[in-house]
Write a protein that binds this DNA or RNA. Structure first.
Lengths: 111, 111
DNA sequence: ATTCATTATCGTATATTTGCGATATAAGAT
DNA sequence: ATCTTATATCGCAAATATACGATAATGAAT
């Protein structure tokens, strides 16, 4: 049981849900917010801004990077991260294309 | 350990992450897609379209409803669901307002 | 070469999510 | 009143996610 059925869905559905999953934690939203504000690459400043241990923040950063929402150059000490805006654009497009039929029928809500 | 630190973040951050979490599974994306296409309220048709057991689908529907992404009237048998477009608009607004500083500085990417 | 500061990774505990079958529930049909 | 059909809920097992401290790794400075 609890077998992973995720592969049984379309690639688009998986991509969208993966993107959403990457944002499905307030810490990661907070990280993205910081990176968006200071466009410049930051590293351990994030740790000071969040109520989490350094290792936990690092883990969240890794998840964001794996999901492609941010880029990062691990430069020995002093790693540098920033937002991958292209990924966000792509997400927006995919998101809208999935629900495109919406704005047409928007009128009649039933429940 | 693994104490829940989610409350330590701002309400906005929590709201956004909760919305994202609701979409963080391909099955729920698929459900939303169906509901978007057939604007009309549907119920067990969804079960036939997904590769999941009825109870699992029901659970996903409940999560979407709890998160506010869909509305549903449980009418004995034959429950009726549809998308809560207002929630999506709200999400879009929150999402954009969080990253508003982006389009200004978008130019210089660093890594 | 050693130390220092910064970050990633490992190991581990706990919490949450995912999924199913079985069972309950509730309205309509017989 | 009983049966049927459609859904929700319960109970459980397995998988993932969350969080931390401890430790490794890496480049800069001494």
């Amino acid at each position: 049981m609890a077998f992973n059925k995720k592969e049984e869905f379309t690639q688009k559905e998986q991509d969208l849900s993966n993107f959403a999953k990457a944002m499905a934690h307030p810490a990661r939203i907070a990280i993205l917010k910081v990176l968006a504000q200071r466009n410049e690459c930051i590293c351990g400043e994030i740790v000071e801004l969040l109520p989490l241990a350094q290792s936990t923040v690092s883990q969240h950063l890794k998840e964001l990077k794996t999901a492609g929402l941010i880029t990062g150059t691990i430069d020995g000490p002093r790693s540098c991260y920033c937002i991958n805006w292209k990924a966000f654009e792509k997400f927006n497009t995919a998101f809208n294309s999935l629900f495109d039929n919406l704005k047409v029928k928007n009128e009649k809500a039933c429940c």
